[in-house]
Amino acid sequence: MQFYHHPLSMNSQKVRLALEEKNIDYTAFRVNPLKARNLDAEFFRQNPNGTLPMLKIGAHVLCESLPILQHIDKLNEPLGEYKDYRERAEEWIKKIDEWDAKPFTLTHVPDRMIRFFGKFKRRVLIARMAKNPDLANKYHSKLNSMHAMEEQLKDTQAVDSNRKELVLMLDDAEHQLAGTEFMAGDVFSVADAAFIPVLARIELLKLSEEYLRPRPKLLDYWERMKCRPSYKKVIGGYSSQLKQLKLVVPSICNVGIRNVLKRF
Results as ranks from 00 to 15, higher is better:
Met1Lys: 04
Met1Trp: 04
Met1Asn: 02
Phe3Ser: 03
Phe3Gln: 00
His5Gly: 04
Ser12Met: 00
Ser12Cys: 11
Lys14Gly: 03
Lys22Trp: 02
Asp25Phe: 09
Thr27His: 10
Arg30Thr: 12
Pro33Met: 09
Arg37Gln: 14
Asn38Arg: 05
Leu39Asn: 03
Leu39His: 01
Ala41Val: 08
Glu42Pro: 00
Phe43Met: 05
Asn47Arg: 03
Pro48Tyr: 04
Pro53Trp: 00
Leu55Gly: 01
Lys56Tyr: 03
His60Trp: 13
Val61Ser: 13
Leu62Ser: 05
Cys63Thr: 15
Glu64Gln: 15
Glu64Leu: 07
Ser65Thr: 11
Leu66Asn: 01
Gln70Arg: 15
Leu79Asp: 00
Gly80His: 01
Tyr82Arg: 15
Asp84Thr: 13
Arg88Gly: 04
Arg88Pro: 00
Ala89Gly: 06
Trp92Glu: 02
Trp92Thr: 02
Ile93Lys: 01
Lys94Gln: 14
Lys95Leu: 12
Glu98Phe: 11
Asp100Ile: 07
Lys102Ile: 15
Lys102Gly: 02
Thr105Ile: 15
Thr105Tyr: 12
Leu106Gly: 02
Thr107Pro: 01
Val109Gln: 13
Arg112Cys: 12
Arg112Leu: 15
Arg112Gln: 14
Met113Phe: 14
Phe116Ile: 11
Phe116Met: 10
Gly118Ala: 13
Lys119Asn: 13
Lys119Pro: 00
Phe120His: 13
Phe120Ala: 08
Arg122Ile: 05
Val124Ala: 00
Val124Met: 01
Arg128Asn: 09
Arg128Phe: 05
Ala130Cys: 08
Lys131Trp: 06
Asp134Ser: 14
Lys138Tyr: 07
His140Lys: 13
Lys142Ala: 05
Leu143Asn: 02
His147Val: 10
His147Lys: 13
Ala148Val: 05
Met149Trp: 01
Met149Gly: 02
Met149Ile: 08
Glu150Gly: 14
Leu153Ile: 06
Leu153Asp: 04
Lys154Glu: 15
Lys154Pro: 05
Asp155Pro: 11
Asp155Ile: 13
Gln157Leu: 12
Val159Phe: 10
Lys164Asp: 13
Lys164Asn: 12
Met169Thr: 10
Gln176Ile: 08
Gln176Lys: 12
Ala178Trp: 04
Ala178Thr: 15
Ala178Gln: 13
Gly179Trp: 10
Gly179Ala: 10
Phe182Asp: 04
Ala184Met: 07
Ala184Asp: 02
Gly185Thr: 06
Gly185Ser: 09
Asp186His: 13
Val187Thr: 11
Ser189Met: 06
Val190Ala: 01
Ala191Tyr: 03
Ala191Gly: 08
Asp192Phe: 04
Asp192Arg: 05
Ala194Phe: 01
Val198Asp: 01
Val198Asn: 05
Ala200Phe: 05
Ala200Gln: 04
Arg201Cys: 08
Glu203Phe: 02
Leu204Asn: 06
Leu204Phe: 09
Leu204Arg: 12
Glu209Thr: 10
Tyr211Val: 07
Tyr211Ile: 08
Arg213His: 10
Pro214Met: 06
Lys217Pro: 02
Met225Thr: 07
Met225Val: 09
Cys227Asn: 12
Arg228Ser: 06
Ser230Phe: 04
Tyr231Gln: 03
Tyr231Phe: 12
Lys233His: 14
Gly236Pro: 02
Gly237Met: 10
Tyr238Cys: 06
Tyr238Ser: 08
Ser239Gln: 12
Leu242Asp: 01
Lys246Tyr: 14
Leu247Ala: 07
Val249Glu: 02
Val249Pro: 02
Val249Cys: 09
Pro250Gly: 09
Asn254Thr: 14
Val255Cys: 11
Ile257Met: 14
Arg258His: 11
Lys262Asp: 12
Arg263Asp: 10
Phe264Lys: 04
